[in-house]
Nucleic acid binder design. Structure first.
Lengths: 217, 217
DNA sequence: ACCGCTATCGCTCATTTGGGGGGGATTGTT
DNA sequence: AACAATCCCCCCCAAATGAGCGATAGCGGT
């Protein structure tokens, strides 16, 4: 509701970071023609923090490959300077490495450059409404990170062993675990020995690493 | 390309799992009227595995709250029986718990029931193209899981200490780390001592737990 | 030239841990 | 009744580890 009012009273302010001059100017033109206010377009993002502080754009379109600081760093700068600014990545890269670096830096959306203009407008609208516009292949990658590996879980830990493991992965020592669970010191060790066997590891550190990486918790 | 051909030759097959009779029938009607082939609509998903094996739907719309097995279990069943079937959750729930359980089970999309029909068709199209349609608020939740906590990292570990820590979180022993890094046993121990101080922990297990949970790696 | 920091290595000592035994109690299955 | 699985407890020993000392060498900043 508030948002719609806002849209009627003043145009959406957008900043563009993109080092390809032609593309950047095309984008600015396209957005301006569609009643967006382009507060500025830049061919590098070294000054991104100051720019968003001064012009307070609602949305930023951010390329990744630019001279100077990369767009990934750019997102971080912007999110630190003005968290309310929504940042949509706009890039040709679709490798996991760059994608997840951007997401970790706080990007609100991730569009591939092959996105048609109509979808671009949709995306801007969506991010303004609190969404997270992503190109289909990107969204798929993101969801896939949640899928469990099928083989990972079944180590047939008994309930009690699972419980001990949960204390272990908090970094607690045997002695502490024993007192937390109201067990004898040697009982906990006994459980641990069985856990190590079932996980095919030979010390607590390996067990913690394996448990946390394969989410057996 | 292949996909478009497919669309022209035969309608998209859809199965619906939804325990609200009125809603389920409305959906089936709506889809049928728009040239989709509804292979079946069901008020519970206990037999989901067999159903998708027999009718081989391209897309499944899956509710969560149903009598018998929950829709979350339903996704898992379907994905195990026929991974090629795209499953779109269609539910009123937007709590993190259920959301991430569905994603872990392998859901390909997640729509809230307040989604207007037009968007529903868009979503079906998107999932067929290999995307991951999500309601805006859901997509935002998903992206937020990637954002780093800002305060977490800066423990001022030196480059060398970081390197030692990276070996440590793989579960390696001091002796192994020393040989991997071509260092003396006591040097590694020395680094570890400093790491423990900087991380405010007092043993390797705690360090591993902290490093993995706060992604200092 | 001095200082601080890091990286490297060394030495003790007490504690923790892993690996190997063993046994008894309970429960559910065959 | 026999059996397997789980849970609980105990002992011993060798290795790994944490904590406390100290030392040298290099490197950059003042």
């Amino acid at each position: 509701m508030v948002l719609l009012l806002h849209l009627f009273t003043m145009p959406v302010k957008i900043a563009i970071f993109e080092d390809n001059d032609r593309l950047r100017e095309s984008l600015a033109y396209l957005l301006t023609m569609n009643n967006y206010e382009v507060t500025g377009d830049y061919n590098q993002c070294n000054e991104a923090a100051n720019i968003v502080r001064v012009y307070q754009p609602d949305v930023v379109l951010m390329d990744i490959d630019m001279p100077g600081e990369s767009g990934i760093k750019g997102v971080a700068l912007i999110k630190e300077a003005r968290p309310d600014t929504a940042v949509i990545m706009y890039t040709v890269f679709e490798d996991d490495e760059k994608l997840f670096q951007c997401l970790c830096a706080g990007a609100n959306g991730y569009l591939l450059k092959k996105t048609p203009p109509a979808k671009l407008f949709d995306a801007i609208q969506e991010v303004l409404e609190g969404g997270a516009p992503m190109s289909p292949s990107i969204a798929r990658k993101v969801l896939n990170t949640f899928k469990n590996k099928p083989e990972s879980n079944n180590y047939m830990l008994s309930p009690r062993e699972t419980e001990v493991l949960q204390w272990l992965i908090k970094g607690y020592s045997i002695k502490i675990i024993a007192s937390e669970m109201n067990l004898a010191f040697d009982t906990v060790r006994s459980h641990l020995k069985n856990i190590y066997q079932k996980l095919h590891v030979h010390c607590g550190k390996e067990a913690i690493a394996k448990a946390l990486n394969e989410r057996i918790v």
